[in-house]
């Protein structure tokens, strides 16, 4: 087998699970996540001869993925694939049990679907991938100020659409 293709295969099989997790948070749907990662990987393959020994292949793929996602949503208005109706909030114990955890996760899932693509992207970058504001700005091709404002708007929107997530907050100045 072509050594470059072999390297690409290895990259795809090693990194796809992680890429899919981010893509799933970005899209909220298994098939859309697969589409997104597949498309980003195809472009990575296209540039593989340049990327393979650069150590930047995953960063490149992720950057493509985020740009694609923001673009897809804006251009095609892909119908929300996540459930639009939030699950009924559960009352009860202060320490959530498993069922309550599940409900909260579903609530978060549905609430994320209410955000714009950009707002989701900044949340995923900041709180799932643990990127700094500067890194998130670079990946999305926006300013740090935009990352800050979109993060703030995203969190505010989550609080609005899912009051049961009311404790959700980011302490002012805590951002890296």
């Amino acid at each position: 087998m072509d050594p470059l293709l072999s390297e690409f295969d290895s990259f795809v099989r090693t990194r796809t699970p992680a890429l899919l997790r981010s893509a799933y948070l970005l899209t909220g749907d298994q098939h859309l996540a697969e589409d997104l990662v597949q498309s980003a990987l195809a472009r990575t393959h296209r540039s593989w001869s340049r990327l393979h020994d650069s150590g930047n292949a995953e960063a490149y793929t992720r950057k493509i993925m985020y740009h694609l996602q923001v673009s897809w949503w804006r251009r095609h208005r892909v119908p929300e694939s996540m459930p639009g109706d939030l699950p009924e909030p559960r009352g009860g114990d202060s320490a959530p049990d498993h069922a309550q955890q599940t409900t909260l996760r579903l609530t978060l899932r549905a609430a994320l679907a209410k955000l714009s693509a950009k707002q989701r992207a900044v949340l995923v970058l900041r709180f799932f991938e643990d990127r700094t504001e500067a890194e998130a700005a670079d990946l999305l091709g926006v300013t740090v100020g935009t990352v800050k404002s979109q993060t703030s708007k995203a969190l505010a929107k989550l609080r609005t659409v899912a009051p049961e997530l009311a404790q959700l907050h980011v302490t002012e100045g805590s951002a890296r």
Binding site: A23, V37, Q38, R105, F128
Partner: peptide, 22 residues
Amino acid sequence: DLAELAEEVTPVDLRDRALRTS
């Protein structure tokens, strides 16, 4: 919670599909 939510996705092998798209 985001990490937990992300685990809902089912891992799939996208190698062939990526190459086809490529």
